[in-house]
């Protein structure tokens, strides 16, 4: 059969499968692998982003400068805070609302739809909306003033200690229902009989939640937390719109810093170095998260 030059049935099947996968693979190669690879290469160069002939190899200079750049460290710190805060609140609120909806209280189906509306809105629109709400003279401060809490009013987006958390608030408001829906789907997979047995054994609601629901939700939690972590690391649009990274870099994150270095100031090599850090951080986060899950099992 080999000598005849004809492919075996198995080889033909494999070739057919490969041909079906080829278009997607090419897209993956062109739009993901190549840009990542080129960014990695650019991180070792100095380039203003116009002519390829002017790319100059500078070795590790960009990374050395990056690690001496206090704004980079602030952006990294802000990214970690943002990722941690959003992941925590998204999961707590997402699970809480999923449990409420799963309890089938009156109106829960309608609430499910209403809560999900922000998820389908563009983050830029969400950012603009929250910017208006949190304006020094916006709805939030006006409401606080009207109920006698004027001392709690602040220029939320313009004050160093609040700016980043204002963005966290807007993010959680938008994406909470996304986690809710995934948790809700996970709750449907838990056999009802397990709850019934636990109830018969005298377990309270909180005990059932702790010893039945949460352990069985672990695979779902792993996925959601991972999505939240990765999503948080690469956040850009909502911060760009709401604060621009200000005031004085107090809400600057790695993506916004990358944008300003690469696209505002033409330091493409330096921006690429930041991009490499973002990719490495994402890989490390994913690896760590998955490892923690496997060890728990």
């Amino acid at each position: 059969m080999y000598g005849s030059g004809k492919l075996s049935t198995n080889a033909k099947r494999q070739a057919t499968g490969f041909l079906f996968v080829l278009p997607a693979f090419l897209i993956f190669l062109i739009f993901l692998i190549y840009p990542i690879g080129f960014t990695f290469y650019l991180s070792f160069t100095k380039w203003m982003g116009f002519k390829f002939s002017e790319i100059k190899f500078v070795g590790l200079t960009n990374f050395v400068n990056l690690f001496q750049d206090r704004i980079f460290w602030r952006a990294l710190k802000n990214t970690i805070i943002y990722v941690g805060a959003t992941t925590l609140f998204l999961n707590i609120l997402g699970l809480s609302f999923a449990l409420i909806i799963d309890s089938k209280v009156r109106g829960s189906r309608v609430c499910k739809v209403i809560y999900f509306l922000p998820v389908v809105m563009c983050p830029v629109v969400i950012g603009i909306m929250w910017s208006r709400l949190l304006d020094p003279f916006g709805f939030v401060n006006q409401l606080l003033g009207r109920v006698g809490l004027e001392r709690l009013t602040h220029p939320w987006l313009g004050e160093a200690k609040y700016a980043l958390f204002a963005v966290v608030l807007a993010t959680v408001w938008q994406w909470m229902a996304y986690d809710m829906v995934i948790y809700y789907a996970g709750l449907q997979d838990i056999p009802v009989e397990l709850h019934e047995v636990a109830s018969l054994d005298g377990a309270s609601y909180w005990q059932r939640l702790r010893y039945v629901t949460l352990p069985l939700l672990r695979p779902v939690t792993t996925v959601i937390v991972l999505l939240n972590l990765i999503g948080g690391i690469k956040v850009f649009d909502i911060i760009f719109v709401m604060t621009g990274g200000g005031p004085n870099y107090h809400s600057e994150v790695l993506s916004t810093y990358l944008y300003s270095q690469g696209f505002t100031y033409n330091f493409m090599g330096y921006a690429s170095a930041i991009g490499v850090i973002i990719v490495l951080l994402s890989f490390a986060t994913a690896y760590f998260r998955l490892r923690v899950s496997y060890e728990a099992v």
Binding site: R132, F137, H154, P155, L157, P247
Partner: peptide, 17 residues
């Protein structure tokens, strides 16, 4: 200046004010 200018944008915030 109006308080909170760092949190106010030029057109919709300050100009609107």
């Amino acid at each position: 200046f109006v308080p909170g200018i760092n949190g106010m944008d030029y057109y919709t915030g300050a100009f609107g004010f």
